[in-house]
Design a protein around this nucleic acid. Sequence first.
RNA 1: GGAUGGAUUCCCGAGUGGCCAAAGGGGACAGACUGUAAAUCUGCUGCAGAUUGCUUCGGAGGUUCGAAUCCUCCUCCAUCCA
Length: 376
Amino acid sequence: MYKLLKTDGNAKRGELTTVHGTIQTPVFMNVGTVAAIKGAVSTEDLVQIKTQVQLSNTYHLHVRPGDHIIKQLGGLHKFMVWDKPILTDSGGFQVFSLAGLRKIKEEGVYFSSHIDGRKIFMGPEESMQIQSNLASTIAMAFDECPSSKLDRAYLQDSVDRTTRWLQRCKDEMKRLNSLEETINKKQMLFGINQGAIFKDIRIEHAKKISEFDLDGYAIGGLAVGESHEEMYHVIEETVPYLPKDKPTYLMGVGTPANILEAVERGVDFFDCVYPSRNGRHGHLYTNQGKINLFNAKFELDSRPIEEGCQCPTCTRYSRAYIRHLLKAKEMLGMRLCVLHNLYFYNTMMEEIRNALDAGDFTSYKKQKIQGMTENT
RNA sequence: GGAUGGAUUCCCGAGUGGCCAAAGGGGACAGACUGUAAAUCUGCUGCAGAUUGCUUCGGAGGUUCGAAUCCUCCUCCAUCCA
């Protein structure tokens, strides 16, 4: 159940109540694709760094350890010891990222496993069954995330197919949620808008999926090669055609600035691998921009990553020490960096919510973006 | 004291007359990454007034049109014999 608490222009401040608790939005979902946030981050850590929702992946957990195993162990929440909301992505992004290892048909997608090459078929029904076995809080509809380089004709076909798949997802989820053996009978379903940067395809698709009466609506297929301006434009054009009384989720995005721009345009859910992956690679987010701790200039820097930051990393460790850990390839280095970056993102979302509550989002956004671009 | 094998660019290490500023690896330095095939990948690593010039392969001489590569002596290292 989504409740719109306040608006500021197009920006929305809301909350989504689920069987696993209430999510305050706008929110950033911390990405743990294989039921783990890479970089040795525990669920206890996640609580400490203000994580509200975790994201896991249908395709990856189906391949390993197998959704039936997770179901037998009581579902994803019990498996990974996390009682707050979990959103599972449907496998649709793997249609994009594993482009060399799959074939798309009307019935679904044939993958060659990236682990051992075995054939895997995933259609809308399979994706829903897997997500039901995982018993996530929110399931994503199975879509095709198309490359931004594809032509209009292909995009139209692809989007039409994604709409047909959405109907099948909805029907299958309804069936699964009514089964006695289903762990989470109140699993939510979010649909996904596609259309690359073709405005009319996006809008037509947004209108169509809005008729499905889903729990939320995502904008997918962005940040896959198009410019920031094109992305912001698509969001601006599409959001007005999605239900205002439902949460809007911009999939896979993005940089802190991307998020601020998208919140302003009415988005309330985000996820991105940036804070975790960049953390592992030594790129740290600060209010003065991004720094690369591998750089020699931090060799003797005894300051924390960010002065005043209350994260578990900055309250103890210096840039010089973390740089040493990273260069020595010690796991602790990556862990400390990922913790800081996720804390930075989660804290920024908290600030965004506070600013929306206080009615001064516009000035908050302006000052935040300005600070981050000053030194870079 | 004798015998043999070695000494190569920051490190390890290939190269035994020209295609060698010198393979490959490591390290160093820098960059990329947006619903995670990512603890990954890419670039760069003698100097400069930089599509050319200069200096480099333990040291000093020599042979040759041309030497990291061949010869002589020297220094140091390793192993073995006294």
